[in-house]
Design a protein around this nucleic acid. Sequence first.
DNA 1: TTCGCGATGACCT
DNA 2: GGTCATCGCGAAA
Length: 209
Amino acid sequence: MLDDFLAGRSTVEIARDLLGKKICYQTPQGIISGYIVEDEAYLGQCDRAAHAFGGHRSKKNEALYWPAGTIYIYTIYGQFLLNIITQKKGNPQGILIRGVEPDAGVAQMQLNRHWPKHLYDLTNGPGKLMSAFGIQNLNLNLNNYVSSPLTLDVTHYKRPLAIAETGRIGINDKGEWQTAPLRFYVAHNPFVSRITKREMNLENNGWQK
DNA sequence: TTCGCGATGACCT
DNA sequence: GGTCATCGCGAAA
């Protein structure tokens, strides 16, 4: 159960453990799902790269202050980005989902993404995966991953052979918060953003047997 | 963030 | 020559 998965753990711990877990979206056209292969932790008031830095709170980032399991969606550069809130109400920490390996509904995702040349281009980025899922509005913001069409299934998962960590992407002039290893991904998985073809392992996608 | 374009370099035929 | 991967940029939203 998702609540047990999130309860009493640090955001970093959750971010690492989220790799390989399944995210599912119930649509009129059928179910779309994917395994999380890349994410980033945002640690709240103290984190200079976080939306809640210094306790900042507004209508846009309100979800950060809601309980673990809340869906937080925000827009940037015209893209919709998906997050999960990880701590108790009032402690604004969360995780940005940056890449998923397509599972169910691949044809629908291809359609939503206008048939990219390579399969790995389908969902290898935070904006791309939302486009592939067909989520292009804020309707699900402030909902949660248990009782909405968008759910997190922590009982069906794959196990990474290795987890890689780097600084977060798109963070500039944030000192130690820019380089802190808070981005996690399944090493060698082709659906990780900015991975080179040479790094990909197309035999096992970086998963254990 | 994502896309497209031009430039470069590697490799194949 | 042709294909493909990588990289740097500018543009869009």
